[in-house]
Amino acid sequence: MLVTCLPDVAKDVGANRILKTRAGHFHHPFGDPSRPEASERRWRLEATKKALEVLTEPVTEPTVFEY
């Protein structure tokens, strides 16, 4: 599965399981520097959990999930 903040590009190139991290950024899909450190870590833990769950999702075509 692919984690990105540019899901349209990922869809165009045919990635099938895509997670868009809303709080992430193009430069760092697993980071949100606007938060204090502890809060950013908690957010990343949840985003990563979601990324792993996406691996278990049945899909038939490029599909975007969000966290």
Binding site: P33, L45, A47
Partner: peptide
Amino acid sequence: FNTVFVNEDPDRMLALDALKQL
């Protein structure tokens, strides 16, 4: 792209801290 934020904290890209905890 601007690599400053990820170089400050490489977990922002690779999420090792979160993956190790999980």
